[in-house]
Design a protein around this nucleic acid. Structure first.
Lengths: 151, 151
DNA sequence: ATTCATGCAAATCGTTTGCAACCCA
DNA sequence: TGGGTTGCAAACGATTTGCATGAAT
């Protein structure tokens, strides 16, 4: 149920933002957003998104997927990720997140763990105190060994 | 003076690691390392490194710069950076750093500030406690407004 | 009707690679 | 000598772009 509400929410958010910025609502845009909504916890490459889109809508071109995932990213509906594996990846933004969440990357099995907690508050306060730098957002990756691999 | 010692240190570290791994010490390798040593606090793109190398040694090819900066990176003598500006960048590793240091990126003027302090200890302890994840290294960028731009 | 979006293919651009010539150990 | 290394140019792969056609407002 939460999933469905979430999906409706995201769709409406997208449609609203499109209108606000003078963009048109095309079937291709709906389809790309849908692919992301159907893979909420994945970190998809553009090629993967294209495959999903293509499965139901073979007429949609790769360039269109590039153009629209970019648009979704500009509108903060998806986040662009770089997990250091040579691919640009995207994931659906989590609701209620002010800052981007962190990723724990297992160097053994490659698993990527999402960290819900922000935890950067005190560090960012420190940057303000020491450097006069006001943080708006951050992007952090932690490389190491996950629970399962640590046996 | 410190700079010079540092440079000697880095050179020797490089030469030692090369030997240890069965690599040869070529003039091109010296020249690439030198370019990095002469720009200690910069975040250079490969193209920039190539330009510096080329200024004194025009016969060195771009592919060689790519191959050797990669090698320096593998040997942890330089760090590969992604400052989200579309370029892969490299900087000389700081001495005595166990983990990669953080970067504060000003969204106004583009300035990049290096943070010497690690500050991630407690967060990483938290990952161990909550997720059983042991952190080996991290990579963190903070986007915001720097002191100068915040007036 | 107007304007923006799409599909396609060509163009870009950073990076990698194959290979013959070369040079360090 | 012999195997890693280099320079060059060609190959690559991800992403972008130009343009004529098509769809949304």
């Amino acid at each position: 149920m939460r999933m469905v509400e979430n999906m409706q929410e995201k769709c409406e958010e997208f449609y609203t933002k499109l209108k606000e910025n003078g963009y048109k609502l095309t079937s291709q845009r709906k389809v790309v957003l849908n692919a992301m909504l159907e893979h909420q916890d994945d970190h998809l490459t553009v090629e993967e998104i294209y495959q999903f889109v293509n499965a139901t809508n073979p007429e949609v071109g790769l360039a269109t997927v590039y153009r629209n995932i970019q648009l979704l990213s500009d509108m903060k509906i998806v986040e662009k990720l770089n997990l250091e594996d040579g691919f640009t990846r995207y994931e659906l933004s989590k609701d209620g997140e002010i800052h981007r969440h962190h990723h724990l990357i297992c160097e053994e099995c490659g698993k990527v763990i999402e960290v819900k907690e922000d935890l950067m508050g005190s560090i960012e306060q420190c940057f303000k105190d020491s450097y006069g730098f006001i943080v708006n957002d951050h992007q952090a990756k932690f490389f190491g060994i996950c629970k399962d691999c640590n046996k």
